[in-house]
Design a binder for these strands. Structure first.
Lengths: 140, 140
DNA sequence: ATCGCTGCAAACAGTTTGCAGTCCA
DNA sequence: TGGACTGCAAACTGTTTGCAGCGAT
């Protein structure tokens, strides 16, 4: 938390209560959240918070490279997550919508090299697995 | 083309000129298209076509399991693609936005089994690679 | 006292829906 | 002929932007 605040301060950004609240809510959301989820959480303590501010602060954090936006199938908007040093992927539950991190990358890099030989220079990839989490499978 | 028409007919759907045009345009789009791209193409021959109809027909085809919607990073909407019998992935050029198909799945399935052992039942996955295609690399 | 940040409201883009008229089967 | 399909317009969702005032530095 203070680490993020320090980064912002160092780069000349002001530390407003709203900004603090967004960061706090974000860190509390278990690394995954949509803008709306963050707003809901922030409003528990800052009822006047606006969604715009959430978006603006998330965008700022994305620009600073602190968090990232990921694509999850579904229409409820983009999901933001903390950038960790490790490149990783997600298991997304089709029932409850929760995402878990995968702690390894199951991509076969040798095969990938081949694709690059066709002239395509791969710089990144996004990989999400869909299915049903333990909870939903056993209680559904 | 006629195969799709037959499927529709068999299920009791009417074959309207608009529906034909959407299917034709879709097949011509090299298997990838956004709703808007299909509309643009359709309008070359059917200038009165509306975007709603494109959406409705794409949704119908998705429901019939004939085409699918895929997530590509970017804000210009969902991309639809023909379902082929082969499960496959895409190389998406960050410069021109074009997508190419990958003819194999570079996912290491053994490792994946492990994840499932944590209680998560994986039913599908989406994987997109981002980078720069030959054209953009050499002419950019 | 700045100048960035905020809330508000309005604008956006992509998509969906209600409705009255059209047209395929 | 009748129900499915269409175009239009309006609604909706997630997101962005313009603006005037507020507040961290």
């Amino acid at each position: 938390m203070e680490k993020l605040i320090t980064i912002l301060r160092e780069r000349g950004y002001k530390i407003t209560p709203q900004r603090r609240a967004v960061i706090t809510a974000f860190l509390e959301s278990d690394k995954f959240a949509t803008a709306q989820q963050i707003l809901d959480r922030v409003r528990e303590t800052n009822p006047d918070m606006s969604l715009d501010t959430v978006y603006r602060n998330l965008a700022l954090l994305v620009n600073l490279g602190v968090i990232s936006e990921i694509n999850i199938r579904g229409k409820d908007g983009n999901i933001y997550e903390l950038i960790t040093t490790e490149h990783h992927h997600h298991l997304v539950c089709l029932n409850c919508g929760k995402a878990e991190c995968l702690d390894f990358c199951p991509i076969n890099c040798e095969k990938l090299e081949n694709a690059s030989k066709n002239g395509f220079n791969i710089t990144s990839h996004s990989l999400e697995f869909y299915g049903y989490c333990y909870n939903c499978r056993t209680t559904g």
